[in-house]
Write a protein that binds this DNA or RNA. Structure first.
Length: 104
DNA sequence: GCTTTGACACTAA
DNA sequence: CTTAGTGCCAAAG
């Protein structure tokens, strides 16, 4: 199984109204890296064409900061997250303390 | 097969 | 808190 497949599976496991960080996903995907793994996740997201199977919009930075979105951009991503029921900070960040998803 | 780039993370100023 | 620099791994050209 490619890193992409593992990452996709982990991301697809994220429930609605929850978000996960690139680093977290990388770790869950089995990529136990200090920080580099997060990059692989970003690549996988960008390379991901099945946005329906992989809700990349639920993936945020380590600080709950939105990085990018290969569909409608950060703007669209933020809207989707709000629609999911996630609140944003004045800086446009997400409260990881409340919405951070942790695998069982 | 090597070089460049990238949806990150962390530390320092 | 913001900006800049460095380190990491993998995919694309």
């Amino acid at each position: 199984m490619n890193s992409f497949e593992k990452i996709y599976k982990v991301v697809s496991k994220i429930p609605q109204g929850k978000v996960a960080t690139y680093k977290q996903i990388a770790k869950l995907a089995g990529i136990n890296l200090p920080t580099g793994g997060a990059r692989v996740v970003g690549i996988a997201m960008h390379a991901n064409k099945d946005i329906i199977k992989v809700p990349c919009h639920r993936v945020v930075g380590s600080n709950g900061k939105l990085t990018g979105y290969a569909r409608g951009g950060i703007k669209e991503k933020r809207r989707i997250l709000e629609k999911e029921g996630i609140s944003f900070d004045l800086k446009g960040n997400i409260d990881l303390k409340k919405y951070l998803f942790h695998s069982n």
